[in-house]
Each structure stands twice: as structure tokens, then as C-alpha cells.
Computed example of a mutant assay.
Amino acid sequence: MPRRRPTNPKVKAHIVLRNGKRAAPRKSGIALAREIGMSEQAGEYLRGRMAAAVLTLKPLEKAYFPDGVGGLREEVLNFKGPLHDAMVKAFEHFSLDPEDPASWRTLVEYFAYIFFWEPPRRRSGKPTEWTEERERELFAAVSTLPGLSDSHAAMKLANDKKSKFYARGQSASDGVSGLRRRIGKVKKKFGAPVGTK
């Protein structure tokens, strides 16, 4: 029988995130305590006991099941959940201690950052980089290239490493096409230099 390829981590993440939206919210220890009429201190105690039982990677040693006569019976087990090894790897990867509740919070913060964090949105609009002074420099540079069209002048300035307008490997708006458009605007603004097309 052919071996199945392991699922891609991105696919796993997508499945977990998709199914996570449908998961029913779990009740906290305090909510459970209120539901059965316990005091708030008892709820806090229950919450602490639940946290101590849940925030560990130690396998369950015992569990309580209904005995059929209205009581509970204790059963000894040595059960590791299906994700136990993966969780151990996650704690080891981030050098965290699974017995420390702060490490659990840190691990959740890492996963929240990986899956849900979005950088703050930048203000709309690109910051102005063509100042009056820079436009005058471009006008002066184009004036030193008599007889060249705007396209040829832009190509010469954008590809010359010694030029202040060298833009090879940058975005198109900063490259030859952007510089050609800027030369046209500068000529209109300051008047076409003598001998240019």
C-alpha cells in the first residue's frame, strides 16, 4: 500500500482555522461554578484546578466515569492525546517549559502572531520624494544631454551608476519609464532646455 504524503503545514493551518470558527465556545471554571450555584471563590479554585490539570503535557493518570448507580468510579489510565508529540515539539522548538503557565501563554502568543497578526496599515498615499530641489537637479541633468529625447535621456540617467537618478532594479515608477514621465513634467514646469526634443 502506498504511503500517504504528510499534509502540508499550510493546509493543516487552513483546516484548523476554518474549523476553529465553528468550534463551540468552552465554558470557564467560573461559568461552570455559576451554573451549578457555587460561590465565586469556589469558581476561582475550580478554574485554578482545571488550569493545573490542563496546562501540562503529562499524560492523564486517572479519570472519573459514571458508575451507573449515581456515583463516580476512578479509572487509572496512561493516555497520551493524539497531538501530544506535536505539542512537545512546539514547546521544544520555542525553548519553553510546558509545566510553566506563562510558557503556555507565550506559545499561544507566538501562534496568534503567526496566524492572525497583521501589520498596522500605512497611511494612504506615497510620501512625496520629488521635491522642488530634486526636480531642478533633474532639469539641470537633462540640460547637459542636448539632442536626446525624453526616453533616451531617462534611459541614460537611470542606467548611469554615477547619476543621482540611477534607478536600475527599482520599481518601474522610479526606473526609466517613471523618470521619462518626470522629465516631461519638469520640462513643462521649468521650460524645455535648448537643444532637447
Rank of each mutant, 00 (worst) to 15 (best):
R134T: 14
A112F: 13
E137P: 00
R49N: 02
S143M: 13
E129F: 12
Q41W: 01
Q41Y: 05
A86N: 13
E74I: 14
K189S: 01
F190T: 02
G81A: 07
G37N: 04
R181E: 13
E129H: 11
I15Y: 03
R26E: 11
D160A: 08
P82G: 04
S171Y: 08
L57N: 00
G70A: 14
S103F: 03
F111Y: 14
K62G: 12
A52C: 00
F65D: 01
E61Q: 06
R168T: 12
R3G: 10
L55E: 05
R181F: 12
L46V: 02
R26V: 14
M38E: 02
R22D: 03
G147S: 10
F190K: 07
V194I: 15
K62A: 05
K21R: 15
R22Q: 09
V88L: 14
T196C: 10
R47K: 14
K189T: 04
F165H: 01
V76Y: 11
V186T: 09
G37C: 00
A31D: 04
A51K: 15
F165D: 01
R134C: 01
K10G: 00
S151M: 13
R22M: 13
R22W: 04
N159G: 09
H14C: 12
S39E: 00
A24I: 11
G195H: 05
I114H: 10
A51L: 02
A23Y: 01
P119H: 13
E99C: 05
L145I: 03
A158I: 08
Y113M: 06
Y64P: 01
P98F: 10
T128E: 15
L57W: 03
R4G: 12
S103A: 07
F190A: 08
L77I: 15
T144F: 02
D67S: 06
F94H: 14
V16G: 03
P9K: 05
S171N: 05
M38A: 09
L107F: 03
S95V: 08
E35N: 13
P101H: 07
W117P: 04
L77K: 00
S149R: 10
K10L: 08
E61N: 15
K161N: 02
F139V: 07
L72M: 10
P25G: 11
Y45N: 06
G20M: 10
R180L: 11
D150E: 11
L60E: 06
H14I: 08
A53S: 09
N8C: 06
S163V: 12
G195M: 10
F165G: 02
R182K: 15
G175W: 03
D100H: 03
P193E: 00
L145S: 01
R4M: 12
E92G: 02
R180K: 15
Y64E: 03
V142N: 02
I183F: 00
R5M: 02
R34M: 05
P9Y: 07
R3K: 14
P120A: 01
G29A: 05
F139G: 06
A51C: 10
A140M: 11
A63C: 12
G20C: 03
S149K: 09
P82C: 03
G175T: 02
R22E: 04
P6L: 08
E44I: 04
G125K: 04
K21T: 08
T56A: 00
Y110G: 04
M1C: 04
I15H: 05
G71H: 00
L96V: 14
V69Q: 10
A154W: 03
G71L: 06
T7A: 07
